[in-house]
Amino acid sequence: MKQAYTLSIFSENSVGLLNRITSILTRRHLNIDSINSSESESSGIYRFTIVVKTTEAQVKKLVLQLEKQVEVMKAVYHTDSDTVFQEIALYKISTRSISEGNLVEKLIRDNNARILSVESDFMIIEKTGHKEETQELLDFLSPYGVLEFVRSGRVSVTKPMGELEGI
């Protein structure tokens, strides 16, 4: 059965490694749901977080193929329930359309969102959460006219203690 798996890949920081990683997915005709890369808690070691929808049998093979790459130190996979994860979304909305009534207060309170910037003609709202939550806010704001919307890749840390030691 296919489901979302979060791949965490720990590697050296090399030109083109992202290419090498994505080609392993491309080769198996897998689409990337979300991707993120940043330096990990260990200086000089980078962490890719990639979400793919596939079967467990497939993801097990993927992890071995990823780990086989010379620059990759470790690759692991997790289901959503094994990780704590977040995404961040930014919404740009016309100030005029949203400033009527107590709409702004309601959306901030109900959605645990915050306002990053208010200009005379637009404002930027930020919300972090799971995809469904940021999507919910997008749906709520849509009738007022969303000028721009962007959602980040997933960042995720694992729940089990000690699992990633020794990388």
Binding site: V15, G16, N19, R20, S23, R27, V70, E71
Partner: peptide
Amino acid sequence: ISISMPATKW
């Protein structure tokens, strides 16, 4: 580099 990536060990 990009062309040979999937066919090289490194």
